[in-house]
Design a protein around this nucleic acid. Sequence first.
RNA 1: GCGGGCGUGGCGGAAUUGGUAUACGCGCCAGGUUUAGGUCCUGGUGGGCUUCGGCCCGUGGGGGUUCAAGUCCCUCCGCCCGCACCA
Length: 829
Amino acid sequence: MASYEPKAIEAKWQQAWAEEKTWEVANPGQHGYDGEKPKSYVLEMLPYPSGEPHVGHLKCYAVGDAIAHFRRRHGFEVIHPMGYDAFGLPAENNAIKTGEPPREATERSIESFSRQFREWGISIDWSRELATHKPEYYRWTQWIFLRLFERGLAYRDEAPVQWCPKDATVLANEQVVDGRCERCGTPVEQRRLEQWFFKITEYAERLLADFDLLESWPEHVVTMQRNWIGRSEGAEATFRCEDLSLDFPVFTTRPDTLFGATFFVLAPEHPELERLIAGTPAEAAVREYVNQVARESVEDRGDEDRPKTGVPLGRSVVNPVNGEEIPMFVADYVLMEYGTGAIMAVPAHDGRDYEFARAFDLPLRRVIEGTDPEAARDDEGLPYPGDGAMTASGRFDGKHNREAYGEIVAWLAAEGRGREAVNYRLRDWLVSRQRYWGAPIPVVYCEECGIVPVPEDQLPVELPEVDDYAPQGRSPLAAAEDWVATECPRCGGSARRETDTMDTFVDSSWYFIRYLDPRNEEVAWDRAAADHWLSVDQYIGGVEHAILHLMYARFFTKALADLDQLSVQEPFANLFTQGMITRDGAKMSKSKGNTVSPAEYVARYGADTARTYVCFMGPPERGGDWSDEGVEGVNRFLSRLWRLCEEVEGRGDGDLDPSTAEGEVRELLAKAHWAIDKVTRDFGRGFQFNTAIAAVMELVNEAYRVKDDLYGDEGGVAAVRFAAATGASLIFPFAPHLGAEIWERLSGTRVWEEPWPQADPVLLSSDTVTLVVQVNGKLRDRIEAAADAPESELLGLARASEKVRRHLDGKEVVKEIVVPGKLVNLVVR
RNA sequence: GCGGGCGUGGCGGAAUUGGUAUACGCGCCAGGUUUAGGUCCUGGUGGGCUUCGGCCCGUGGGGGUUCAAGUCCCUCCGCCCGCACCA
């Protein structure tokens, strides 16, 4: 008997799928379009091609492919494309280090990914393959940028960046370690640069509201996004600096504490700071403080436990509710990025303001009484963040603060000194990167006309070849002088190109649309194709993208819908996040030397084993620790299934009628139908693939146990063959090559063209059931009973049990509980 | 600190609605096949006690609800992931 040879089997089927283009699907109107079937868009997050695929990729695509196969066999026309998120920092850093152009390293990696995905047998429509670094793709990324620009959703503003003075380059957060440049250890400085932003904040409300439109997203992902958007309701109140006739609006969630404001604080980056101090005695001290803050690392500044620091400005503002003048300060605990960059400080009711007041010996004023009226008289129990009656608040005294809240806001509004306001933590998306390896921003700067978008017919703005990828105090693209110097598209005068490139998150915010019409040279996508396939019915990827990528893609979808380019508001109707695979309990990393190379395992055991193993390790949404022994266990199981097939293939038949089957033949058929039912339900309850695969293992084990007895019986061989074929059919989504091979040998057809099997309800039910008998909730015996036996009969059987009677001896049965099909519990006293 | 997730055998994990705790896999033990090892096949495998009939304990700790709790409630402890003075 031939043993299981995955290499030969896998090569055979991969060749068939490639030659026959089995997984390609056509768009409506195209040749081969099947309008009969409902569509299903199954998508895994596209990989970033760096080096070789790792086990995280294997898991993601194994899970996604199982879902794609399952849907196909349920009659869906499944679109299942693949592409590469090819721009990005690692390839550029590699280029700086080795001089190898990023394009070469990236395309070599894409080769490797593409080859391995085929070796894994992932059912991809390769005709739709794309890579974001190709001009035919980023041309349309640039096109979207221009559409957003037209809509006012792309704008320029000054923003601080982290700057390494030695390398003369902007650093990404991940390149800053302990406030120092990762490469040379030089302390990082802050610089301000004019940069491009996308106005995602304009969509904050819709990004929150439209969670309702999603079919199924993990609750924790929705929660993380909610927190990230960070909506808070409150009020804006305007404090006025009379000396300079300057208004300072502040956002507060506690307008009810306005009467308790005893000082006022600006962020060190506040734009009006300069005017406030110019020519005043405070000027030198404030400037010194602001510079010192600018030198601090972001982490240091973010440390909550640090003592509060700041400097008085020698100015004051007027509290709009009581006309009181309160002193102004600058302090680093106020952030320019949140709210208005200025706060009213209420030290009696806010912890941070309290700390600051203590450090600078500023007065506290209690305006809300706590539960303890005694405490209201002195500073006991401060800061007090809770609710209570108002005090020291003029005509609001005595009212409950929750009630006064609305009245104070209304009063402010009537006076023109404030209004209701909603503030978001979410900030606009900074998309400029002072990098080479990204899509050029399609804009030129003309001396006459200013910012001029590149006309659509001049796209793509192609990334020029450069010799040196190291930035020398400017974006590496600035070195390509011939490329930078251009003509103004508007006036024809001399102009310079934008030398920043786009954040790679921009590339990956719309790739799922381009898949639907990837070769279109006229438009970014054909509207009818997009309308047909969107939304993505099942999106699969790592939870590490729970916030940024998913939020950006949602924003793009909404913006594109507003631009009348799409008909959906949400890109991904259902989201599944897979957990991370670890090794020896730790995250895999090259530096730790604990990486697992999928290629190695595929070479040794075959792709089917590797794929099935990552699905069997545990629930796919959770993480799991890689175990070589576990891989062998799965390989053993697939080999057993293989040998079962070998044993019954072509063996003398004898027809099998499930409705009249008896004894062990019927039991084996029943086990097969149980497995069908179990696997089907496990797909339905959140892709519980580990238990689905366990069910197929049970079926195979059962077949092994009984097969030698069955071969003599009427229909015995056929029953074992049915078990093997069913096992192959059910394991196919995880081990497609083996599943296809066994199915073909036993049935002569192609398993992916077969509908998903249906469990026969007759074989799922049993005439007799085993019930548990408990006395006072403790298990005492098991009894066999007819499945439809009435309660009285079950009670009789329970009481008749010798083991049960021993525990009833001399006691009174006070309660009898019967759960049909499950148990009988007798409560005695 | 805030938000999210999680604690079950030697290990990964299972347990649909509160109803047989530990399915399946690994590991280990025994038997069979084999010249031997490996492969392969079968069986066993939570802990303690046992008069060998069974009995008691057991899902991070403690408490509660219930005829019945891994599952629900309260409380404490530990681990993992995100975010960081959010006004």
